[in-house]
Write a protein that binds this DNA or RNA. Sequence first.
RNA 1: AGGGAGUUAGCUCAGUUGGUAGAGCGCCACCCUUACAAGGUGGAUGUCGCAGGUUCGAAUCCUGUACUCCCUACCA
Length: 892
Amino acid sequence: MSQQLSDRYNPADVENRTYQWWESSGYFKAQDQSTKPPFSIILPPPNVTGFLHMGHALDHTIQDILIRWKRMNGYNTMWLPGTDHAGIATQSVVERELKKEGVTRHDLGREKFVEKVWDWKHQYGDRIYSQMRRLGDSCDWDRAVFTLDEGVSKAVKKVFVSLHKKGMIYRGKRLVNWSGPLETAISDLEVEHKQIKGSMYHLKYALEGSSEMLIVATTRPETMLGDSALCVHPEDDRYKHLIGKNALIPLINRKIPIIADTYVDKEFGSGVVKITPAHDFNDYKIGKSHNLEFINILNKKTELNENGGPYQGLKVQEARKRILEDLKAQNLLEKEEVHVHSVGHCSRSGAVVEPYLSEQWFVKMEQLATPGKRVVENGTIRFEPESWTKVYLHWLNNIEDWCISRQLWWGHRIPVWYCADCEHQTVSETEVTSCEKCNSKKVSQDEDVLDTWFSSALWPFSTMGWPNETETLKTFYPTSYLVTGHDIIFFWVARMIMMGLEFQRDVPFRTVYIHGLVRDSQGRKMSKSLGNSIDPVEMIEKYGADALRFTFAAHLYSGKDFKFSEQRLEGYRNFMNKIWNAARFALSNLQDFKVPADGVKALPNKSQISVFDQWIITKLAEVTKEVEDAMEAEKFSEAATALYQFIWNQFCDWYIEFTKPIMNGTNAEEKQATQLVIAQILNRITRLLHPFAPFISEEIYQKLPIKGAACIVDQFPNTRNDKEFLSLGSSQAALEIDIVKEVITAIRNIRGENRISPAVKINARLGVTNDQVQKILGNNRTAILNMGRIENLDIGTEGNLMKCAVAPVAVKDVSVKVIIPLEGLVDFDEEVKRINKLVEKLQKDIGMLSSKLSNEKFIANADEDVVAADKVLLAQSKVQLDSLRDALTRFQ
RNA sequence: AGGGAGUUAGCUCAGUUGGUAGAGCGCCACCCUUACAAGGUGGAUGUCGCAGGUUCGAAUCCUGUACUCCCUACCA
């Protein structure tokens, strides 16, 4: 079989086939009822319009690691996928498509347009699911939910009606953030503030019955058309006498009162503020408290309306330009100065957001926020990293009511019907055909839809069949983890918590795992406009899904943003290839392996296995423990890195090399014992690797002589369940191999520094007096000969050091002197340089150590172990220094 | 303005009970040594942002400071 394996790992040969096999074998499926403990994650539903982007890839990798890890730990795992109808985003996409045909949604009308969107959804809605499969997401696909599915719609209506009944949803004419291009209200969270270098315009307002002019500063001069007052500070001596008098708006000469409010900052600008209650959030409050007129000067498209007088019909920006021209012409603009301020932009359309007065639906948040705060404060829900707790609580402490209505056509329509006869509002979960108050048939449903995040907020239970009391809910609610980026903590996480508590009387999840955002290699956000987006599917095609997943896993450090670089991905692709080749080689050495009768349970006899076997098992025990601890602590990068280092730097670099002579040797018994160890180590490597690199691990696993049915459902090794095998390791073997490794490294170092070609075989002596150590080195003669490329090796006395390279080796309290005669091989310049470098280093160390050890306070205060270790080190360093100096003299 | 995060090798970043600074990539040298050139072996590279303090000892703890980034809120 191993001959079939190519010398390069080709993910394309493996991934689709393996995924299909897993899926058709039902390994992803969760059981609604099971004796196994439940573990569940609800996937943050990607937009149905979307392609899989790097952010998803990172997000999903984390979730899939958790799910696969828990599955292998015997949990009844449910990863529930879904997609979001994403109101504005989807509607925009379809509108853009229509625009190409020269059609607007208004041409089609609501019904036809919504049909078009559904068509679009049916055509492209599953696209992202197939991309998720490419990544290896082990979701329970049978449970996939769309936010406009019937069940979810039922939940949405029920929640709306229920909150309305409790008085927690209300309708009101309020100032909201308005997106002109989209012709809809957007929530505070959908507004992006950008620093803009704009202008501050100082306008001249005439006083009624006076030639005096009042200077008023503004950044938005066009809003003066909607002014209801001028406002000054009540204790501002400059203007006190004007309070109660009237001023005239420039150009249109409408009369407005001059009022006083402490809101005004005397120091800022001229100390006089124009009040435009219908177009500014602060002014709105003043307007309310002073009972001012609310003059709306805009229409839905953010063009000036009939209140705009001569400027009616102009867009805001044009109106501003024209008004400024006119002001200048009439000498009513005192000055214009550069002013940097932040301006709200619509996060969807990019347009400047205009505060706009309109009828909207709101959710009262205060009541919902209190329990939402409590569960995080008391630790029922934990944020990881913990620092997000503060951010979350701060937001809830300053929460504003949530505007949930959107003037869109695509989404959950607001379940309210208005009666044309008695104006009564009927709020109902079911279709309303007559007014509940007057029975009139002239009822019409509210035209607006709900904010997408309204349905998202119910996601943890609406996806599990609520409002029905399903087995799924009983088993899997609350879910175990919520994994997401920090950009949607407010949008989504907080609202899920509040809705979960309100409607399930329990938190929706226990742990919120927040990860960073994926950025480009320069740290910029990936965006279409910058053209720096990288397509994960393309990366998977080029490097393999495992490499991509491992790249993320290895760099997941406490919620930090992730700078993605293809070069790094390449490194992990190489790692996958390394694993592949190691397995390929190991398997080729297992061709004549006789599988023991007890198969996967077979363990070698400790007395039969080599010191190499014992050593690698010791290392395996270490990495198993590291992975175990790291996974428990959600430190995925530590787990991934530990595996990387074990596989590459221990198993490949040393163990495979050490065991080559055994594999090629004639001792059948020894070979069989080592073969069993190799088979068992590979079995464990694949399992440990599986959550991170599912495809390659399954592929190799399936080729192993001893294995279970599938890696994906085999047990994840830990120090408890693998105790028997891991106990075959030995610390004595570990020490022996450490000495051998150090000796070999010292030989290689001398070779390298003296530029002795690997093709040239050399002689070496190992100077060591201790019998025990001599024996150890003697036992490993073959390894040293092969890996150091040594012709003749003497172990024992130092002998004559004339013209010899010398490298002292120290492992714990063991010292060995590696001696290589250089006569005739090279000139000695490089060796002298090398030794001098070592001498320098040793002198530095000795200086540092002896000053430390001669410090009484150090001896008194430091741990005994630390002092003892330093003493040993100092003694060894001194011996080494002497021998090196000695060696130096032999070159002269 | 308030809050959070960061500043360690050329680059990207690790480094929690304080005990002589690490990885990957890149770089230099030598190698196609029969698993792997997507490889092997060896090497170079850091007063751990700056200034104080605590301590026998600080990248690590405390204080201050500079710079960067993010979030929230914004003065017309």
